[in-house]
Simulated assay, not measured.
Amino acid sequence: MTGRWGSFPPAAPQDSGPRQAAADAAAAFGAAADEVDDAAAAALHVNRTDLRIIGLIGAVGAMTAGTLAEAAHLSPAATTAAIQRLVAAGHLRRDTDPADRRRAVVTVTPATAEAVGRIYGPIAEAGHRLLTGYSDADLELITGFLEAGRRMQVDQADRIRTHPAR
């Protein structure tokens, strides 16, 4: 597959037909999503890991540091450093866990949630407009491809984490 890495590392055997065109389009889509996240991180004055942390917490509302470390695939020390950085920058807030008052949870601040909405909301709206041109059958096919591709990517990330190249 070609895309954001071009011919490096060497790609799997290629053909010039629709299968290769789909693989190239999927790689280009991933690279474009990376560009959006780079721009969003810059707009929020955070790095990509911190943006991912904001997204993970925002998706569920509140997380403990341990749960966040696991979800973000970060060490506890790296997670603590990121939380401290994001609290100091005003993106996260530490609160007492309402379910267990002995624990702390982190939440996204309202100002950051609003900024994230301003950044990603128009993208969601544009994406929904794009989808209106497709039939239900087309959308089922696209959804199946995207879900299978997501699972494949997660499996490959797990493979890389478990068996690094070095």
Rank of each mutant, 00 (worst) to 15 (best):
E70T: 00
R101V: 00
P76G: 15
T109P: 05
A77N: 14
Q84N: 15
A69K: 04
A62D: 00
T96F: 10
T67M: 00
T64I: 10
R101H: 14
P98L: 09
A62W: 03
A82S: 14
I83A: 05
L68G: 12
A81K: 07
A72C: 00
R94I: 13
T109M: 09
V105R: 01
P98V: 12
G61D: 15
A78Q: 15
H91P: 01
A77E: 07
A72M: 04
R94H: 01
A111P: 10
A104P: 08
A81C: 09
V105C: 06
T107W: 04
A65L: 00
T112W: 08
R103L: 04
L68C: 03
R101E: 15
D100Y: 03
V106P: 05
H91Q: 03
T80K: 05
A88W: 03
G66F: 09
Q84S: 15
A65V: 08
A59I: 04
A81Q: 15
L74K: 06
A88K: 03
I83D: 01
A99H: 13
A71G: 01
R85V: 08
L86A: 00
R103Q: 12
T80G: 04
T107F: 10
A111L: 14
G61A: 12
P76R: 04
T67R: 12
A62L: 07
E70Q: 01
R102I: 15
V106R: 00
T80S: 14
G66A: 03
A89L: 12
H73G: 06
A88H: 02
L86E: 02
T79V: 01
I83T: 01
R103T: 13
T79P: 02
I83Q: 06
A104Y: 06
E70M: 02
G66L: 08
G90E: 15
A113T: 12
T67L: 11
A104D: 08
A89R: 07
A62Q: 13
A72L: 04
A113D: 02
T80Q: 09
M63W: 10
T80R: 02
A88C: 00
V87M: 04
R85D: 11
G61W: 11
V60H: 03
D100S: 13
P76I: 06
T64S: 14
S75T: 15
L74F: 13
L86I: 11
T64G: 09
D95V: 14
L74C: 09
A99K: 05
A99R: 02
